[in-house]
Nucleic acid binder design. Structure first.
Lengths: 342, 342
DNA sequence: AACGTTCGGGCGAACGTTCGCTTTACCCAT
DNA sequence: ATGGGTAAAGCGAACGTTCGCCCGAACGTT
């Protein structure tokens, strides 16, 4: 193990005190240009890199952002993109992402967050997959711990979040289907607890209502976010009497849409021709499905960046002009929503 | 900001010196049971949590494992499972995963690893998506920095790795297809640089040879790991003269298999009936494709665990009985490999 | 000639641990 | 009584920084 070089090594090389080296490195020094360059030369020569533990101890901060993985679910493609951009933004500001695991036990989970923060292992948290009344959020607010969430929560809570306007996204989808002449539009949504699901569902309801179309309860099917559940969902729709068969199925995610497309193909229907299917997320594969999937693209990288920006402002006690940021998604039309035969 | 409680607080509460508290907490103390319980009570009462920065500074270790994200590629489903289990195993030993980003510039990348380690920000690294002669591996070996990789590399290099026997996996696939009577078996592989791709390809070659079947060069198509490329791959196969059309397509990954299935469906072929398709990875969706995909399931969680175990042994200077671990995958038969009509 | 000011840089202290060595007190054998 | 041994806990130092304050020299002013 090669001896690690410290400030003192650099100092004796440059012929100054080690504290002066520290100041120069942090740009807080008042030194002659030649002393400064002597110091930089020494730093370069010895390949000095500051020891983060020492710095963290002194500055009482870890320059680490905690992010908890709850489980490996079907939403990973979205979360991965989110995390990637978040990590990138964090690094631009000298921070890194620290991963830890939580389960599904609310009490235990908040304790995990608490432990991480109490030990000063992280300076703050990033949350995703939050629910309405998420106990983690309640806890973090109460403790005054810096955090930002991807996703809204209880309207009465005051905290930083970034979200994509799911209602708007589905409204764009339904508008698109209405334009193509569809009237019997069904929706495969998520279980009712899901807050994100509720927002997207609201988009479906509002546009159907606006178009003067009936909100048939049979057309609103709630399923888990898996391919299998999507296939099962369309099976339910196809079990309806023929005059109630939808001509379009709005799916709340691409994963479900893939299941729906499989299920419809298995029933002998040509997606994009006999029936329209739409998704949500624009996962990489969507473009290359058979047929390519009409879907909604969320500005995930913008979310990742905004979330980290907001978090760092909290950590560094900077003023925050706007605590909640709602971004608009964008409809991506492909062949799965076909052309309606009128 | 509530004042953080330190060893000294606990000590004065328990009426001992703070160093004694430290010893008790680390199980290195020689104290009367009653003193010990007084200390534990104080710890409990004040909710004391050790400050990791201070501990890290003192012990010269960060209890952090570095993992670099190279990019968001189609292999994420596998890497996510790997990472999840790695994080879990790490936590069982008091370590956490620290994420950082690298690009594709070899020199810059090794510098990033170097910087992370020199600052003592991490105690070691986990690598994935490695190539033959990966410069990161060369660098880490040379510097004597602890690391373990998911995937082998240059046979002449001496380092810790865990891998899944890709040759064996594809051999199982080909055996399965041969049993079903297939003779005209094609393969969609990865670009020739990919070491993992080479291993899997070797499985194809060896079994074809063993069965006395010709290795037609047209049946070996190399494509990128995307759905699109898979579809393009089968298009090439279908462009062959009819008597050279394969009856089975062995795909090197599920992602490519999905593309292949799409491409075949688009050409009017019934996968699992007119032609067999197999994948590799058993991504969550495979089971629910149309038809369900015959594929190879890798023991990814075992890999994640083994990789971390090996790394921690290096970090803690424990003896390592075996530096390279090769695990066997398992064939999962579903309907996409159909039943050959003989 | 005596006196502020400014510049360049040194110095001590502290962040919260861990760890090895010392000290105190007590017990027992001589 | 004296000494040796051990158990229990204290003590000093160190890990590598950052930060505020102090100090000496050089300078110009009255």
């Amino acid at each position: 193990m090669p001896k690690t070089t410290t400030l003192k090594d650099v100092a004796s090389q440059a012929g100054v005190s080690y504290q002066t080296v520290s100041k120069v490195l942090n740009g807080k020094a008042n030194v002659t240009p030649e002393t400064e360059s002597r110091i930089w030369d020494a730093v370069e020569m010895l390949g000095y890199k500051p020891n983060v533990s020492a710095r963290n101890l002194r500055t009482q901060s870890s320059h680490l952002i905690g992010y908890a993985w709850r489980a490996l679910d079907e939403n990973r493609p979205v979360l991965d993109r989110f995390l990637y951009k978040a990590a990138q933004t964090a690094e631009e500001h000298g921070y890194h992402l620290l991963t830890f695991l939580i389960g599904s036990d609310d009490l235990m989970d908040t304790q995990t967050y608490q432990a991480m923060y109490d030990r000063r292992q992280v300076d703050g948290f990033l949350l995703a997959d939050t629910n309405q009344n998420d106990p983690r959020i309640a806890y973090l607010i109460e403790q005054g711990i810096p955090f930002t969430s991807f996703g809204q929560a209880n309207k009465n809570w005051d905290f930083c979040w970034v979200d994509v306007d799911g209602q708007d996204g589905i409204e764009q989808v339904v508008d698109h289907l209405l334009e193509r002449g569809h009237q019997r539009i069904a929706m495969l949504g998520w279980p009712a607890e899901s807050q994100t699901g509720q927002h997207r569902e609201a988009g479906y309801r509002s546009k159907m209502k606006e178009a003067g179309l009936p909100l048939e309860t049979e057309w609103m099917v709630r399923v888990d976010n898996t391919v299998q559940a999507g296939a099962e969902g369309v099976r339910q729709l196809l079990a309806l009497p023929t005059d109630k068969h939808p001509t379009a199925v709005v799916c709340i995610s691409d994963v479900i849409a893939i299941g729906a497309m499989n299920g419809l193909a298995a029933a002998g229907l040509q997606v994009g021709q006999d029936i329209a299917v739409t998704g949500y997320d624009d996962i990489p594969m969507s473009e290359f499905l058979h047929p390519p999937l009409t879907t909604v693209r969320q500005p995930i990288t913008a979310v990742g960046q905004a979330v980290v920006d907001l978090l760092l402002k909290q950590i560094n006690n900077q003023s925050i002009e706007q605590k909640g940021i709602l971004l608009k998604p964008r409809l991506v039309v492909r062949r799965s929503s076909g052309v309606m035969r009128l």
